[in-house]
Design a protein around this nucleic acid. Structure first.
Length: 664
RNA sequence: GGGCGUGUAGCUCAGUAGGAUAGAGCAUCGGAUUUCUAAUCCGAGGGUCGGGGGUUCGAGUCCCUCCACGCCUGCCA
């Protein structure tokens, strides 16, 4: 509704320019006046046109104004300042339009292209997840929710690097440090008193200590890696057992924070199905990669990066060009090579497909599929995306750009343009937090804004430890308030509050900001936090609950019928009209905000919006008493307002993956 | 050396492809409703938007330059 009005206004403006001045312009970007007294939407384009039209901006604006009305949803138009055109919306119409269920948006933008593939989480399956992984998953999951909200078909993929060095390292640990075989490890996994992912976390750190101390230890790693890649023998079996068990733990952890997947894509299947060999052929034939006969990269297949669009990368003095090795001189392929093959598959450019098998079922029955040799006939059509987003931390920007370079070298210009690296910054530890975790810091370290986590040192905050601490704290808060005696409701509320706090904490920073993790901030439930947002919704619902006690027939969904257009007009134009209207206007902007968040691939935009809306509502909540309102018409109007905000805010929180408890 | 990113209040961060008076949370201080439960609200102090040039009617936002910090620049991922 609101977006449609906005589009109409901009289109009419473009039309008016054409009529009056015979000039064709692109639709201007709408601005928002500093306060609602000055209008609800503003166009500043007259300033730019002034020079071209040799007239003052104000004069241009004045000539246009008369031709802008009538417009649906717009009450009046004025010229302000040096030449702003300000539009005042028909408040009653917007308010009643908001009440209608929000329909799917028209097919435009990326929705028109086809299926969107979002790859996120993609944790190495060799140890427990940590906070950095949570940031990845929450960003990716929220982005998926946004895309779906705006009508895009989305498929969520989680890439499982089950044949990489990190898994090999843990295998080395089991085999050489612990002298464990397949059966021993299987018992370990089944042991209810051991958290297998935590066990591997510690083992992984021990392996690196061993690498540092033992002379030929790295040869063991190479040996393990080779065995795993070839898929034969006990080491490969151990790798499969370990990585599968860890993946199950990761799914459990992510399910706790409302993150789910459609498909797990396993690297072992990419190897087994020889996707790489096929991609290799295509890359060779197209000349995208070449064999180096001499020089420092002799014996390797490399890709030149001059065409990457990063400017001239040739080093003139040595005459050597900037290249990336794709196939090593020993014939093995690098990670980027496998990633190129994987991404070709995403766009159905590989000419072959995986088999699929159900891997997991969530409590409500929704399945998670994985790539598998023994294909199930009823598997959905995975892949074949039109657009792909890969949620991967910013340190891999260089490697991701190489995948796009390969696409272009192969002539897949359009697909390269639709391949997006959703880059985000890492989560470090605040120096104070690092010390809490038992790390010895130097004076210089303490001056740093953050300390890098290190899986190799075992330094980091495990995801489940953090979630547990949050649940613990939330439980205390819930019990202290004595909202309910029911332990089941207490537990449910505590979980929602903990997840709300965590997800909001990870979403409120824009993705290019390094988060210096600190328990004090992450465990905060007041101020700009998830629980604040949840509490706002609970307040709105409390009003309804209380009102219902004296009005048993009350149904908030039917409030729209109880408030007439005239009454809307009266209250929105009356004494407190501005305050009421600001709240409605904000609630009406959800779709606009979601579109902005998608365009910028920035979920933080929605998080900030949720906070602004909650803040506006809490302010309103304090200023106006609703249950004690004497005038029934005004009371209905106020209830209607609460309903509008409740709807918008609840929906916004759902986009953030945040649920709302019954009571707080 | 090159590429990318960051730099805004004491701290942590927003600032909508340039627009009207730079905002929020935390922290500090001072207030509010014996209620629709205070996980709340209101107010106060606190800013050379890293420095310097430039473009523009208009720059926190765009361009140039310099500074600081971080990441990447592996036959690791």
């Amino acid at each position: 509704m609101y977006l449609e009005i906005q589009r109409e206004i901009l289109a009419r403006f473009v039309g008016a320019i054409q009529e009056v001045f015979g000039l064709k312009i692109d639709a201007p970007v709408p601005d928002f006046p500093p306060s609602v007294e000055m209008g609800d939407l503003s166009i500043a384009a007259c300033f730019e046109l002034a020079k071209q039209l040799r007239q003052s901006p104000r004069k241009i604006a004045e000539q246009l104004v008369a031709r802008l009305l009538p417009l649906p949803g717009v009450e009046r138009v004025s010229v302000a300042g040096g030449g702003y055109i300000n539009f005042y919306l028909d408040r009653a119409q917007v308010a009643s339009g908001l009440f209608r269920p929000r329909t799917s948006p028209p097919k435009h933008g990326i929705a028109a292209k086809g299926k969107v593939l979002v790859e996120h989480t993609s944790i190495n399956p060799n140890k427990a997840a940590h906070i950095g992984h949570l940031r990845n998953a929450v960003l990716g999951d929220t982005f998926v929710r946004l895309l779906r909200f705006r009508g895009n078909p989305v498929e969520i993929q989680n890439y499982i690097d089950n044949t990489g060095v990190q898994v090999a390292d843990v295998v080395v640990g089991f085999v050489h440090l612990e002298k464990k075989g397949l059966e021993d490890i299987r018992k370990l996994i089944q042991d209810p008193f051991i958290r297998f992912d935590y066990y591997c976390w510690d083992l992984y750190a021990r392996v690196f200590q061993y690498y540092a101390e033992a002379e030929d230890a790295l040869a063991l790693r190479a040996e393990a890696l080779k065995a795993i890649e070839e898929g034969h023998g006990e080491m490969a079996a151990i790798a499969d057992l370990v990585s599968t068990a860890i993946v199950r733990k990761h799914l459990e952890t992510m399910e706790r924070i409302n993150v789910r997947y459609d498909l797990l894509v396993e690297e072992s299947e990419i190897l087994r199905l020889e996707f790489w060999e096929y991609a290799f052929e295509v890359l060779k034939q197209s000349g995208a990669i070449r064999y180096e006969e001499s020089g420092k990269n002799a014996g390797c297949w490399v890709m030149g990066l001059a065409e990457a669009g990063n400017g001239e990368t040739t080093d003139e003095e040595s005459g050597s060009e900037d290249v990336k090795i794709i196939v090593r001189s020993n014939g093995t392929v690098t990670y980027v090579g496998k990633d190129i093959a994987y991404h070709l598959w995403k766009f159905a450019l590989l000419g072959r497909d995986f088999g699929y098998q159900r891997f997991h079922r969530y409590a409500d029955g929704q399945p998670v599929w994985r790539t598998a040799p023994d294909a199930a006939a009823e598997a959905p059509a995975f892949g074949r995306g039109a657009v792909a987003y890969s949620v991967i931390d910013t340190r891999q920007s260089y490697l991701q750009s190489i995948v796009a370079t390969a696409f272009r070298a192969l002539g897949f210009q359009e697909e390269a343009a639709n391949l997006h690296h959703f880059a985000y910054e890492v989560v470090g530890l605040s120096p104070r937090c690092a010390e809490e975790m038992g790390l010895a810091l130097t004076a210089a370290d303490r001056q740093r804004s953050y300390i890098e986590v290190s899986g190799r040192k075992g330094l980091g905050v495990k995801a489940d430890d953090l979630i547990n601490r949050l649940v613990e704290k939330a439980t205390q808060e819930v019990q202290a308030r004595q909202m309910t005696e029911d332990p089941a409701e207490q537990a449910a509320s505590a979980r929602m509050i903990a997840v709300g706090a965590l997800r909001y904490f990870l979403l409120k920073f824009s993705r290019r900001m390094i988060i210096a993790f600190d328990f004090k901030e992450a465990l905060a439930f007041e101020g700009e936090t998830g629980p604040y947002l949840q509490y706002s919704v609970v307040r709105a619902r409390n009003i309804f609950r209380k009102f219902q006690e004296s009005h048993p027939d009350f149904n908030p969904q039917r409030l729209g019928e109880l408030v007439s257009a005239n009454q809307l007009k009266m209250f929105l134009g009356g004494k407190d009209g501005e305050a009421f209207w600001e709240l409605i206007l904000l609630a009406a902007q959800l779709e606009m905000v979601a579109d902005q968040a998608i365009a910028a691939a920035e979920p933080a935009v929605v998080a900030k919006y949720a906070f602004r809306l909650a803040q506006a509502f809490n302010n309103f909540y304090h200023r106006y008493r609703i249950l004690s309102e004497a005038d029934p018409a005004r009371q209905n109007f106020l209830l209607y307002l609460v309903h509008l905000v409740n709807e918008s805010l609840t929906r916004t929180l759902d986009l953030l993956g945040i649920e709302v408890p019954e009571r707080m």
